[in-house]
Design a protein around this nucleic acid. Structure first.
Length: 286
DNA sequence: ATGGTTTTTACTGCGTC
DNA sequence: GACGCGGTAAAAACCAT
């Protein structure tokens, strides 16, 4: 019988990981970057892996909007309806539009710790939307957010809707509506996110170790093979897998903690993780 | 619009520390 | 007594048709 390994209590400080400029353990890249808001995660620019996170905010607040007021510079004022001012407006509209959108994409990208390639694809998508005149009737921020969301998924580096909601200036509803629209109009090909892609970040935010990540991935693969994943939220599956994996490896984490970092209800975690564990017994894992 | 499925919300009881 | 976990019913959200 393997003795129950007493897990170390989670200590926020005192236990500083010893990776400074070692590069990304996942893809060996050197381009590590500290994300701007949302908790100062150290993330890899190439693969988006979160290597280290400083403030785990477990408060109920992390889905709140931090920057309530920001863009006070875009003061529009009453239009003076003069002819050439009107012309300038329409002429430069596209340029201003694009510039602002790109800066938004940049801002959200660093907040989310998304790799550079994703920003680039997002920019391309946005330009296409602009060319096809899809912005009309929609907000620039909305389309920018949608473009980034789509790009992140296309490049297999997805962020959840809730993660986006935390950094974007548009509400979730507008986000999803705009996202559907541009995906449809531009004929973008976006496949459902693979739950495994959420695992590293959740594990990292929960301060669990690599073993959990491996186990979670194994559980998810088994589930996929057994075809119990279709129709289920990838984020929910990932969260459940992380929780289940923590159980299996005797790591301390609660359902509510996992639920919080993944923005998934505990009920969903319960329902999913039971299924995952059943498979683990019945089917073969690995 | 509608119906089926999934997720969330709210509430419950049980065991433990 | 608070906390973690499990279960349930009903509401809400989602999705394909």
């Amino acid at each position: 019988m393997p003795g129950p390994t007493r897990q170390r209590e989670r200590t926020s400080e005192e236990e500083t990981e010893t990776e400074e400029e070692t590069g990304c353990p996942e893809c060996e890249s050197d381009s590590l970057v500290r994300s701007a808001d949302g908790g100062g995660e150290l993330v890899c620019e190439d693969c988006g892996l979160v290597i280290e996170e400083e403030n785990i905010d477990r408060g109920p607040e992390w889905r709140a909007f931090n920057h309530s007021e920001r863009q006070s510079k875009s003061r529009v004022g009453a239009p003076t309806t003069q002819k050439w001012q009107e012309r300038i407006r329409t002429k430069d509209a596209g340029e201003r539009n694009l510039q602002f959108a790109l800066s938004e994409i940049d801002r959200m990208s660093s907040a989310l710790g998304v790799p550079r390639s994703v920003r680039e694809v997002a920019s391309v998508i946005y330009r296409r939307a602009l060319d096809d005149d899809l912005i009309r009737g929609r907000s620039i921020e909305g389309v920018a957010t949608a473009a980034l969301y789509a790009a992140a998924r296309q490049l297999n580096n997805p962020r959840s809707l809730d993660e986006f909601a935390a950094v974007s200036r548009v509400e979730k509803m507008e986000m999803t509506r705009t996202y559907r629209y541009i995906v449809r109009q531009l004929g973008l090909e976006v496949k459902p996110a693979d739950p495994e892609q959420y695992v590293p970040r959740f594990v990292s935010r929960l301060d669990l170790d690599e073993e959990v990540e491996r186990e979670a991935r194994a559980l998810l693969r088994a589930a996929k093979d057994a075809a119990v994943t279709s129709g289920k939220s990838p984020v929910g599956l990932a969260a459940a897998a992380v929780y289940a994996a923590a159980l299996l490896t005797n790591q301390k984490v609660t359902q509510s903690q996992v639920g919080e970092v993944a923005d998934i209800s505990e009920v969903t975690i319960r329902n999913r993780y039971k299924e995952l564990l059943e498979l683990d017994h019945g089917e073969l894992v690995q």
